[in-house]
């Protein structure tokens, strides 16, 4: 069965239809990408998938369970974690604490344990720290564990945001333009890392602008433009689709015009 099945979701803001009748699915253990020019509605799809916007219509199923229109804080428990296009780490907290926040939904002790510092708290805090350090280790961030996140270079902060999402052990991980702002070497490292995630049991839905990255690591690609899915297929098919080329060239033209 599909890990994620999205059927005919719609979202409009006032007169603007940002997402219209979008359907797609993600098989467990795969990397599926959504590409498309700026303003195509990709981030809006992520916001619908994580409860930040309510769907005007349509349904979202995670392993067969409907998950549309829940409160945003519910999604980690349902098994969906995400990163943001515009980096959203906790700058004044340390790298380790950032990841511990990702782990918090798995911590079970209550207020009484906190106030009395019971063995239950100590045990769970220790386990949380271990899990967090393990993730940091995997992303080669453990050397920075005690450092304030704000002091790290942008590339490391982006990695940290992924670490924070991974520590939730999500059944579906949503990555919104993880390579944006990274240099070519960092992008290549990131591609390697993301490519290795399905082996570790993760399923990934990726939004990305960097075409070569998407083509290299995706099992399947959906192309969006003006709120609709205009094309889909394996990378080789999508690459050749004239509609896709047109959508991208159209945007390139606009970009040149606005720069000139």
């Amino acid at each position: 069965m599909e890990r994620l099945k999205v059927q005919d979701i719609c979202k409009s803001f006032g007169g603007l239809t940002a997402v219209s009748n979008v359907s797609f699915q993600v098989e467990a253990g795969q990397i599926v990408s959504i590409i498309g020019p700026n303003g195509a509605g990709k981030t809006t799809v992520f916001n619908l998938l994580t409860g930040f916007y309510t769907c005007d219509a349509g349904s979202i199923l995670l392993d067969g369970r409907p998950i549309e229109n829940l409160p945003p804080s519910q999604y980690v428990k349902e098994g969906v974690a995400r990163t943001f296009q515009n980096l959203r780490v906790f700058p004044a907290m340390t790298v380790l604490e950032n990841v511990l926040i990702g782990y918090q939904s798995k911590i079970e002790y209550g207020w009484a344990d906190a106030i009395l510092r019971t063995p239950r708290l100590r045990e769970q805090e220790r386990a949380a720290r271990e899990a967090a350090m393990e993730i940091l280790e995997r992303l080669k961030l453990s050397a920075f564990a005690g450092e304030r996140c704000a002091g790290l270079p942008y590339g490391l902060q982006k990695k940290l945001e992924i670490a924070r999402a991974l520590v939730c052990s999500p059944r579906l991980l949503l990555l919104d333009e993880p390579a944006a702002g990274l240099n070519p070497q960092e992008t290549a490292e990131l591609a390697d890392f993301v490519h290795g995630l399905p082996e570790q049991g993760f399923t990934i839905l990726l939004i990305e602008h960097d075409m070569s990255l998407v083509m290299d690591i995706s099992n399947y690609i959906y192309v969006m433009d003006y709120g609709r899915v205009i094309s889909e297929g394996i990378p080789e098919q999508v690459q050749k689709d004239p509609k896709v080329i047109e959508a991208y060239i159209g945007q390139g033209g606009i970009r040149h015009a606005s720069e000139g």
């Binding site: 930040f52 980690v76 510092r117 939730c168």
Partner: peptide, 25 residues
């Protein structure tokens, strides 16, 4: 003790970024 538990951590996260905190459950 509250500050040194997950509740204190969560409160600090809320101060930094409510959206990200919400996303983390």
């Amino acid at each position: 003790n509250i500050l040194h538990s997950r509740f204190g951590r969560n409160l600090r996260a809320i101060k930094e970024d409510e959206t990200a905190a919400e996303t983390m459950g």
